[in-house]
Design a protein around this nucleic acid. Structure first.
Lengths: 154, 154
DNA sequence: GTTAATCCCGAGCGCATAAGTCGGATATTC
DNA sequence: GAATATCCGACTTATGCGCTCGGGATTAAC
């Protein structure tokens, strides 16, 4: 999984909308300013998210965008999958872009990549906007005991 | 993390060399044939791995490549990092390509991405060629109880 | 009903990168 | 010295990401 700018921007905008739930619509201009996103580019992104029914728009003066679902109903995994197309690190272990590989039966490391994909998928699918916003762990704690490792740095 | 073809090919070649440890040098032609890799392209890759001292070459007729280290001493993480440059899904949580992001303190989801990065890093760093070859789990079992999830498909 | 702020939509563009090609030099064995 | 390898640098080509742009439709405020 590799986050594109588009997905990054989409998530930023979404979280801003979550923060302002119940309030007035937020115009793209404002979403762009607060998250340092090129306005015209964000426009496209918002349109796609509207088609997905994650957000709804109000046209005209005083218009803007609102969240269209509850923050519990949108996961980071969905967002990444929608914009980037997949979560897996390579096609042969992907649910979305799977394509048979002639080497599959011989491949020594496919198994490891599959494990990686499963971890990520699990993590991202647990990560609803609500949970992430709350700052709560997004997956069962036993995973996260692994975090701090020797000299990893950041 | 997203595996490039280059990294994929590099790993395939490495595992082939592991299988043939102690035997005669394997020429690129053969490595390419067995793993369905464009020969000229693999040439480049092998040269890079030679510079890294993961493999050594024997020039001339009957020449080819040999593993230069024990399979316990090379991890998939190293290989991915070398060819693709990083393991992290986004620069702001990467050890290698870290760059400060002005939104860092406000960013709601950075934390999740950091968790993802840590999981992957851990997994890939545990994955020595030897272990993967053996087919043994590459990381502590508690991680892998998470694997099979509802309707995930592949 | 005019103005101003907004969303909506399609098109296009430039650059970086991945993935692969190629020509030919150099080394080694038989 | 022919055959088989590696070695090296340069080149190519396609794709996609990350934007930018022009202009139309919609609505609120005055």
């Amino acid at each position: 999984m590799n986050l594109s700018k588009k997905t990054d921007y989409a998530l930023r905008a979404l979280f801003t909308l979550v923060e302002h739930q119940g309030g007035a619509p937020i115009p793209i201009r404002e979403l762009a300013r607060r998250n340092e996103i090129p306005r015209r580019f964000l426009e496209q992104i918002m349109l796609q998210m509207r088609a997905k029914r994650w957000v709804k728009s109000v046209a005209g003066k005083r218009g803007g965008y609102l969240l269209a679902k509850r923050p519990e109903e949108i996961t980071m995994g969905e967002v990444v999958r929608f914009f980037d197309g997949y979560l897996a690190p390579i096609a042969c272990v992907s649910a979305r872009r799977y394509e048979r590989c002639s080497q599959e039966t011989v491949c020594r490391f496919r198994r490891v990549l599959l494990e990686a994909r499963n971890l990520i998928a699990r993590l991202m699918e647990e990560a609803t906007l609500a949970r992430v916003m709350r700052g709560a762990p997004v997956a069962p704690s036993e995973i996260f005991t692994l975090q701090g490792r020797d000299g990893d740095g950041i």
